[in-house]
């Protein structure tokens, strides 16, 4: 019995794999069915996931096991219910309270986190002596790093016309951005092909058994 369901599961997987791949040829009923099943299943998955992994351990368990110590969690629970008020046409505005709390928290976190990691740390990381290195390749690279970072930031300067020396710097900046886009694209090609390899390893290995997984 278990064996049957194992094999059946692999066949199901292969069928849905082909249904999605068929989209590459053109839109068709197989893809449409797979698409709707995907949307439905994933919404269902997140529903169950939220209940089991977020609401039960963080809200219901603390409240039911030790109410006295955790009564304060009734506040987010109440705000959560206000969130659901979105579904009631005339009470939609009530959901603004929970949204305000969420946005306030993340704004505060984002303000500091991005300042620290994406601004200050990137700046200190660029504070190097570019002329020190084991060989000339490193020195050239470090000079490129410093020049690229500075001109790249100049490109993102909005309140000044890009002309004269400033315009030249911004132009050099966009060249660096282009190199980084090309390189990132090339790198990602590797990642994406890996995914296709993974799929084909499933089809050729698990399903057809031509290659050993």
């Amino acid at each position: 019995m278990t064996h049957f369901f194992n094999v059946f599961g692999i066949w199901l997987g292969a069928a849905f794999t082909f249904a999605i791949f068929s989209f590459l040829y053109k839109d068709n009923p197989f893809y449409k069915v797979a698409e709707q099943i995907f949307v439905g299943l994933s919404a269902g998955y997140w529903f169950i996931y939220t209940i089991f992994n977020i609401l039960i351990p963080n809200l219901f368990l603390p409240l039911s096991t030790d109410f006295a110590a955790n009564w304060i969690k009734l506040i987010p629970a109440f705000l959560g219910v206000l969130m659901l008020m979105r579904l009631v046409p005339n009470a939609e505005w009530m959901s603004r309270y929970p949204i305000a709390l969420l946005i306030g928290t993340t704004s505060g976190l984002a303000f500091l986190r991005y300042l620290k990691s994406d601004v200050i740390n990137q700046i200190t990381a660029t504070m190097i002596n570019p002329f020190v290195g084991n060989n000339w390749v490193t020195v050239v690279g470090q000079i490129l790093l410093v020049v690229g970072t500075i001109t790249g930031v100049i490109y993102f300067y909005f309140s000044k016309k890009h002309e004269g020396a400033f315009g030249v710097s911004a132009k050099i900046g966009i060249y660096f951005l282009m190199v980084s886009f090309g390189a990132a694209f090339g790198y990602t090609a590797m990642a994406r092909v890996s995914l296709l390899i993974g799929r084909l390893q499933f089809l050729l290995g698990d399903w057809l058994g031509i290659i050993s997984p």
Binding site: N121, A125, A184, M190, A191, R192
Partner: peptide, 27 residues
């Protein structure tokens, strides 16, 4: 990391050693 995130993670491999080395994608 996956190949796609390499370029955004790479800045952390720096003088500060925010990251010690990096395994990038399948390669």
């Amino acid at each position: 990391v996956t190949g796609v995130s390499v370029s955004s993670v790479m800045p952390y491999v720096n003088e500060q050693k925010q990251l010690t080395g990096l395994l990038a994608g399948l390669k």
